[in-house]
C-alpha cells in the first residue's frame, strides 16, 4: 500500500517538525521576508522564524555581505515596529546605512562586549525576551550546548536569532536550524552604466533542518531581494550534482 505509506510518512514528518523546534505555521501568519524561490528550501515554504540561524563568514568583506543579507531579512521583521538587539565584540555596523535595508536605525540596541562568554549570556537573555523583533549576535566559537540553550529560549519567546560567526576554527554540528554562507559577487547595472550597481550576493544555504540546501544569487535593489535569473539554471544543476 504505497499511498498509505507516504501518508504515514507525511504525518510523521508533521509530528516531528514541532519537536525539532519548527512550529507549524498557517498561511499568512508569518510575515513574508521576500525570499522568493529560496522559500522552497524551507520545510513549510517560509523562512523559519522563532529559530536560530547561523551565518559563516571569512574576513571583513564577507562579514559585511552577511550583515547586508541579515539586514534585509530583519528589515521586514521590524516592519511591525519591533526592536532589534545587536550583540557584537565591537560594533562595526554603521547605523545610518541600515536605512536602505528598511531598518530604522534608532530601533536597534547595540551591545558591545569583549568577552565571548558575556556575549553568549547576553544573546541567550535577549532571545528570551519576547518583545524583540530579532537578535543578531556575533560569536566566533559556538558549542552544541550554547546553541541548544538558544533553541530552548526561542521556542518560548518566538524570537528569531541570527548568529554571525567570523573566522571560526571548528564548524561542529550544532542546534541551529540552518547554516548559511553569504559572499559578495560583482554587481551589474542593467544598461551598462558606469559605476557600482546594487549589492549582489551569492547566498549559500549549507544546512537546513528538514529542508533542501542550495545556492542562489540575489541582489538587493529598491528595498527588496531580486533574483538573478540568468545564472540560476547552471547553479541548480551544480547543486543537483553535489547533492545527487
Amino acid at each position: 500500500m504505497p499511498i498509505a505509506k507516504s501518508d504515514i510518512i507525511a504525518r510523521l514528518k508533521k509530528d516531528i517538525l514541532p519537536l525539532e523546534g519548527l512550529k507549524v505555521i498557517q498561511a499568512g501568519e508569518e510575515p513574508d521576508l521576500g525570499l522568493g524561490i529560496i522559500n522552497s528550501a524551507f520545510p513549510y515554504g517560509n523562512f523559519p522564524l522563532g529559530a536560530v540561524h547561523e551565518f559563516i563568514s571569512e574576513g571583513p568583506e564577507s562579514e559585511s555581505a552577511t550583515t547586508g543579507f541579515i539586514s534585509g531579512l530583519t528589515g521586514s521583521l521590524m516592519k511591525k515596529g519591533g526592536v532589534l538587539v545587536w550583540i557584537s565584540a565591537s560594533r562595526k555596523v554603521f547605523p545610518p546605512a541600515l536605512q536602505q535595508f528598511g531598518i530604522r536605525p534608532e530601533r536597534i540596541i547595540f551591545i558591545d562586549l569583549q568577552k565571548e562568554q558575556d556575549r553568549l549570556w547576553t544573546i541567550e537573555e535577549a532571545l528570551k525576551c519576547s518583545g524583540l523583533a530579532a537578535v543578531v549576535g556575533e560569536i566566533n566559537e559556538l558549542s552544541f550546548t550554547s546553541t541548544r540553550r538558544f533553541q530552548l529560549a526561542v521556542e518560548q519567546s518566538r524570537v528569531t536569532g541570527f548568529i554571525i560567526r567570523t573566522n571560526s576554527k571548528n564548524l561542529h554540528t550544532n542546534a541551529c536550524v540552518s547554516r548559511w554562507k553569504i559572499k559578495s559577487i560583482p554587481s551589474e547595472f542593467l544598461d551598462d552604466l558606469p559605476g557600482l550597481g546594487f549589492p549582489r550576493w551569492q547566498v549559500e544555504l549549507l544546512k537546513m533542518r528538514n529542508g533542501k540546501p542550495g545556492i542562489w544569487q540575489i541582489e538587493w535593489s529598491s528595498g527588496r531581494f531580486r533574483f538573478i535569473l540568468e545564472t540560476l539554471p547552471s547553479l541548480l544543476l551544480e547543486q543537483k550534482r553535489k547533492t545527487g
Binding site: K80, G81, G82, V83, V85, R107, I109, I111, T122, E125, A126, K128, C129, S130, G131, L132, A133
Partner: peptide, 17 residues
Amino acid sequence: STTGLQDSGLSELLDRL
C-alpha cells in the same frame, strides 16, 4: 500592542545587562 522601545520586557532585559 506594538512591541517597541517602550516594551517592558526590553527595558527589563537592559536593566539586567
